[in-house]
C-alpha cells in the first residue's frame, strides 16, 4: 500500500486544501524573502524524525552549475535570505564555494547544521569558516539531555553537539551580535512541541548551567508526518492519532504566516518546490519547475501545492523552518 494513502485519502478530517483559510492564503506573496537551497541528501546521521530520510547511503548532491543558477536567481528576484540545508550541507563538495560566493555578494546566509559533522576530522575548520563569513547558524539540538537527544539522533550525538556548540561559543557565536546561533528543537515522538518561549527558558538555563553554552533563539518545529517520521508513525500504528492531534490543533491564524508563502525551495537537481516537505514528497511547484529556467523570466505569484502533511505547519502555535509562526 502506498504509504501516503491514509495521509492523502482519509475522510477522517477535511483535506488541508479545502480549509477556508487555505483557499484565502493559498497563494505566494508577490515578493519572496527566502531562497532555501537543499544541496544534498547525504548526511552523516540518520535521525528518526528526518522528513527527507537523509543518511550516509543517500548520494543526491547539488552541482556547482545548479548553485550558480541559485545565486543568479537570488540576485535577479531580490530574495533577502539564502537558507542552505541538506542532508548535512557540509558534505557537498561545493558547499564552501557556495558560502564564499553568497557572502561575497553580501547575501544574508543561513546554514542548517547538525553540529556532529563539525566534529569530524575533515570538517573541523568549518566553525572558523562560518565565523569568518558571518554565516547565521541554525543547529539541531532536540533536547538538553543526552538520553533524549541520542534516542532521536543516534548514540554519541549529544556529547559531540555540546562540544561543537562550545567551540562556536568560543568563536563568538551566540554572544557577538553579528554571529547568530539559533537552535532547533523538535519533539522526540508523536506529540506536538511545547510553547517556544517557555522551552527557550529551559534550554537557556540547562545549557548554560551544565555546559556554559549560550545561544540566540530556540526554534520549536513540529515533526512532519512523512519520511522516516512517517514510517515510524505507520510502523507503530500512531499515524491516525498523530494526524488527529495535528488536525484538532489546526490554528487558522497560522495559515497566513506559513513559510511557503514567502519562500522558494530548490532541490539538489534544481527542481523547485514550495518547501522542503514538498521536496521530500516529490511535489514540485505549480509553475516553472527548474531554478535554471528562472534566470530569464519573472517570478510569478503561484498557487501553493498543499497536502495533508501541511497540517504540521498550522498546528498550535504554527511551525516553520524559523520556528513558531502564530
Amino acid at each position: 500500500m502506498d504509504k501516503n494513502t491514509y495521509l492523502e485519502h482519509t475522510e477522517d478530517f477535511p483535506h488541508f486544501s479545502s480549509r477556508q483559510e487555505c483557499k484565502e492564503f493559498g497563494m505566494t506573496h508577490e515578493q519572496l524573502d527566502v531562497l532555501q537551497v537543499n544541496i544534498g541528501e547525504t548526511c552523516n546521521l540518520a535521525c528518526k524524525h528526518c522528513h527527507l530520510t537523509a543518511g550516509p547511503v543517500r548520494t543526491e548532491t547539488m552541482s556547482k552549475e545548479v548553485m550558480k543558477a541559485c545565486l543568479e536567481v537570488f540576485d535577479k528576484h531580490g530574495f533577502k535570505t539564502l537558507d542552505i540545508t541538506g542532508g548535512a550541507p557540509e558534505l557537498n563538495p561545493h558547499f564552501e564555494w557556495l558560502v564564499e560566493e553568497a557572502t561575497k555578494r553580501n547575501i544574508h546566509t543561513i546554514v542548517r547544521t547538525n553540529l556532529v559533522i563539525l566534529g569530524e576530522e575533515k570538517h573541523r575548520h568549518i566553525p572558523e569558516f562560518y565565523a569568518r563569513k558571518k554565516v547565521e547558524i541554525v543547529a539541531s539540538l532536540p533536547y538538553y539531555t543526552e538520553k533524549d537527544t541520542d534516542r532521536q539522533r543516534g548514540s554519541g550525538v549529544f556529547a559531540t553537539s555540546i562540544s561543537a556548540l562550545q567551540i562556536l561559543n568560543d568563536l563568538g557565536y551566540g554572544k557577538s551580535p553579528d554571529l547568530i546561533l539559533n537552535l532547533v528543537y523538535n519533539p522526540g515522538g508523536a506529540f506536538l512541541p511545547p510553547g517556544q518561549s517557555s522551552l527557550t527558558v529551559d534550554f537557556r538555563n540547562k545549557l548554560f548551567d551544565l555546559y556554559g553554552i549560550s545561544f540566540n533563539q530556540l526554534f520549536t518545529i513540529t515533526n512532519n508526518p512523512i519520511g522516516r517520521f512517517g514510517d515510524f508513525l505507520e510502523r507503530t500504528d500512531n499515524m491516525k492519532a498523530y494526524m488527529s492531534r495535528l488536525v484538532s490543533a489546526f490554528n487558522p491564524k497560522a495559515v497566513e504566516n506559513m513559510m511557503c508563502r514567502s519562500q522558494l525551495s530548490v532541490g539538489w537537481d534544481g527542481t523547485l518546490y514550495d518547501c522542503d516537505f514538498n521536496l521530500a514528497l516529490g511535489l514540485p511547484v505549480d509553475g516553472i519547475l527548474r531554478i535554471q529556467d528562472l534566470r530569464e523570466t519573472s517570478l510569478e505569484i503561484r498557487k501553493i501545492v498543499f497536502g495533508n502533511h501541511c497540517y504540521a505547519c498550522t498546528a498550535g502555535a504554527g511551525s516553520s523552518c524559523g520556528g513558531a509562526t502564530a
Partner: peptide
C-alpha cells in the same frame, strides 16, 4: 503524560 510530553517534559 501526553500533556507533559507536549510541554517538553521528558521521561526522567
Amino acid at each position: 503524560t501526553q500533556t507533559l510530553l507536549q510541554m517538553g517534559v521528558n521521561q526522567e
